[in-house]
Design a protein around this nucleic acid. Structure first.
Lengths: 233, 233
DNA sequence: ATGATACATATTTTCGAAAATATGTAAAAT
DNA sequence: ATTTTACATATTTTCGAAAATATGTATCAT
């Protein structure tokens, strides 16, 4: 009932465009906006309450991240999901995440160890509280993201970290898609704990192997359970 | 004198925004727009003849590529050049280019071999014609880019290729900067020929070593000759 | 019936003005 | 002299209308 209602529109960024990009990104990753769905300006204007220009800027940003594709003069649409894209994405993620992991383990200081341990702890607590299908839990997803982010956070490579974040979003969309059709979520708790132990124990080779197979296994499961809704590619 | 004058404005893309992004990218990479230079809308509007909105879209695109940085509510500026950034960039380029090279050699077909051989041939011809300081030659730069692009063009990884292209632009800016202060360009002809031979000969290990040291050596030279104009980082 | 052409509609793209925000300057207070 | 406040200016950000482009429909010729 106060003036916060107006300001509340800008939750995540200082500018309206970056805020809308954030909201759009979320809707695409969670598949509220479905793959291949065309993003018409009139419709977007209605649901996001912003002008053509502002929306256009947000879409440009998401196109650069690979969540949206732009067909010039023919508008924007949510990026399609294909098996080919999933494989491409998985390969890129493993390459980059393994490199970042190794360097993080080399360079990580006390604060890094604390970030890794505490983010895993938070993740475990959430899993305790909601043992059944935590994978569709928003809180779990945020904690999961933060744990993986913490692992590579000491790598000191802004360029690769930025790419990594973008790929993580694209992968999360596939995970969400798969979760819709999967009877039970795979139990990753053990894998996460092993990752933490290898990282903190400065066992770089083991940590890199673990993260690579963690990503690969997740991807294989996505391909298995979501193959029905994923285009042939 | 015909109506082409109007259409000529759009040389590179179908939309004006993508065309302006292309032109801006070129001016930044060639350092006509200097590192750290602030990109005021009024000034840009004058030199590019487009409206706020269109320019904003182009800048958003270049910010995603890392050639421009956006400070919210305080406009855009050309991305700074620092030794730290150069190192970060070099590391990322080696990681990605080596991976793409190996996969290109695995998968490359006859057409790939032809692309590699013919693009090297063109590069060599240009070097013959203009032996002195071809590095500042626009034609040479385009051919150089195409040769390196050809080498990795069979990798079949759209995601990593897109990142690679973006990193190549950022690196080229550093090369151009260094060229301004370097007495003679390093002779890369031998390295390029060796790269081609290793790739076509399907000697993946050797080709990967060559491309890694090619990138690293270039980066070291940039650091050496351009250190005066690069911020400490 | 089929394909081509012209027209009407839908949609994207671009523009310049208006609003919001930051920056700079001068007067007032301590 | 230094900080604070108020005001004026410069700059970015956002908007909705107008232009450009694509898509769909009906008409005509073959």
């Amino acid at each position: 009932m106060t003036t916060t209602a107006l300001k509340a529109r800008k939750e995540f960024g200082k500018t309206l465009a970056s805020d809308i990009a954030h909201r759009l990104r979320n809707e695409i990753v969670t598949c509220q906006l479905k793959p291949n769905e065309s993003l018409k300006f009139d419709a977007l204007r209605l649901s996001f309450g912003a002008s053509f220009t502002t929306l256009r800027e947000a879409l440009t940003l998401l196109a650069a991240e690979g969540l949206v594709v732009a067909e010039e003069q023919r508008g924007y649409k949510v990026a399609p999901v294909t098996l080919e894209d999933l494989h491409d994405l998985t390969h890129a993620r493993i390459l980059i995440e393994v490199d970042l992991m190794r360097r993080s383990i080399e360079k990580g200081d006390d604060d890094w160890e604390i970030r890794v341990i505490s983010s895993l702890h938070r993740l475990a607590r959430i899993e305790e509280r909601a043992p059944e299908d935590y994978a569709s839990n928003t809180e779990w997803k945020a904690a999961h993201r933060q744990f993986h982010e913490a692992l590579v956070s000491a790598s000191g490579s802004p360029t690769l970290l930025a790419v990594r974040n973008s790929l993580f979003d694209r992968a999360e969309r596939y995970r969400n898609l798969s979760a819709m059709f999967r009877p039970h979520p795979r139990d990753k708790a053990g894998e996460h704990r092993a990752l933490m132990q290898a990282a903190i124990g400065r066992n770089a080779d083991q940590a890199c192997n673990l993260i690579a197979s963690h990503i690969q296994t997740t991807s294989n499961n996505v391909a298995k359970y979501a193959s029905g809704v994923i285009s042939a590619g």
